[in-house]
Amino acid sequence: MIDRSLVNHELTASTMLMERGRLKFFAKAIGETDAIYFDEAAARAAGHPDLPVPPTFLFGAELDSGGLEKLMQLLKLDLRKLLHGEQEFTYHRMAYAGDCITVRSTITDIYDKKGGALEFVVKQSRATNQRDELVAELRAVLVIRH
């Protein structure tokens, strides 16, 4: 059983620079065909200051700095038992290449189903930019198979 006292625990904040090259790599990996996501000139022609950060990219901002491994240590869990149950994004403003995004996450709920065979960890995050403006809120439901 995961320690229920970890509810309301705040994880260490992580900060990630939105690098152009990384955004282009992400666009390639998902087969993106809209040039505004990988061509600066196309992005500017469409009225953007630089390459936009696509809708789901910020999910990885925390993982990139080893967030998944740290979370597994905190929860005393084996990565092999982990599945992604749900993911939600609420958007407040666009982020672009060159922005520096900080993600602050809190564990907001831990519960189980099927007599403890499945445990669920809910993590809510706020992603802010270098001007401390709220870019997006994220909510993840992680599933642990026992």
Partner: peptide, 12 residues
């Protein structure tokens, strides 16, 4: 490619 690009390096 997606593991590297997304930052999710989960080996599974």
């Amino acid at each position: 490619l997606f593991a590297g690009a997304s930052g999710d390096h989960n080996p599974i």
